Structures are given as C-alpha cells and as structure tokens.
Computed example of a mutant assay.
Amino acid sequence: MSAKKSAEPSPEGIARSNRQRLAAEEGARAMADAGKQAIDVRKNMARLRELREAKEAADATLRASLPAPTPTKRKKKSPQ
C-alpha cells in the first residue's frame, strides 16, 4: 500500500520554490543596494571632511596673518 510519488512537482511545491527564488533575488538586490549606499555615504563623508579641513586651514592662515588683538585695560568704576 505504498503510494508512488509522481515525478511532477505539486503546484504548492512550485509556488514555494518560486517564492524562495524571488526572496533570494530580492535579498541579493537589497544587499547590493545597502553596499552601494554605504559606499556613497563614505564618499560624501570624505568630501565633507576635505572641505572642512580646507576651511580650517584657510581660517588658521587668516588668523596668523592678522595682527594680534591688543588687550584693553579695564576701567575702574568710580565710587558713586
């Protein structure tokens, strides 16, 4: 009384394998997108760091070229 399995997969099996295949493809796509976004973020961070460092260097050069501010004497309050 053993039932033979048919060589043809069942419709449920076909649907399951299709869902698994689609999930695997979407997962691979999502991983690729996440990797690309991470690369884009790192590139932007490097660009912004370069801009900040250039600005800081320009500010330091400007401060060095300006004369030092002379300290002002504080006036004493006259007793009233």
Rank of each mutant, 00 (worst) to 15 (best):
T61N: 14
R16V: 04
R19H: 10
V41S: 06
L62G: 04
A38K: 10
R63E: 15
A54D: 15
A54Y: 04
M45P: 00
A64S: 11
K77R: 09
A60R: 00
P9N: 01
G35F: 08
A32I: 01
S2D: 06
E8Q: 15
L66Y: 00
A15I: 04
E12K: 11
I39R: 15
M1Q: 04
D33G: 09
A34V: 04
L62S: 14
M1L: 14
S78L: 12
P9F: 01
R74D: 04
R21Y: 11
K55D: 06
T70C: 03
K77M: 08
N18V: 04
S17Q: 10
A57N: 07
A58S: 15
Q80H: 05
L51R: 11
E25F: 02
R19A: 15
L48I: 13
T70W: 02
K5R: 14
P69Q: 06
L51S: 13
P69N: 03
G35E: 11
S2Y: 10
Q80P: 03
A15H: 13
E50W: 10
K77G: 03
K73E: 15
A38I: 03
R29H: 08
P9A: 07
Q37C: 07
E26I: 10
L62H: 05
L62R: 07
R63G: 05
R16C: 10
P79N: 05
T72M: 04
K4Y: 05
K75Q: 14
E50I: 09
R16Q: 05
A54I: 00
T72C: 11
K75P: 00
A28H: 00
K36G: 07
R16D: 10
A57C: 08
N18Q: 10
I39N: 01
P79L: 02
L51V: 11
E56L: 09
M1A: 05
A54G: 10
R42Y: 09
A23E: 03
I14H: 02
M45W: 02
T70M: 13
S78A: 13
G13A: 12
R63C: 08
A46N: 10
K73W: 10
S6D: 15
P11G: 11
E8G: 07
L22G: 07
P69C: 04
Q80F: 06
K55H: 11
S2C: 08
K75I: 09
L48A: 15
A68V: 13
D40C: 12
R29V: 03
A3T: 14
I14R: 01
A7P: 06
E8P: 00
S10Y: 00
R29N: 05
V41P: 00
R74K: 15
S65E: 13
P9K: 01
A46W: 12
A58C: 04
E8W: 12
K55C: 05
D33M: 09
K43G: 13
Q20W: 09
K36T: 06
Q37D: 14
A24G: 07
P79A: 11
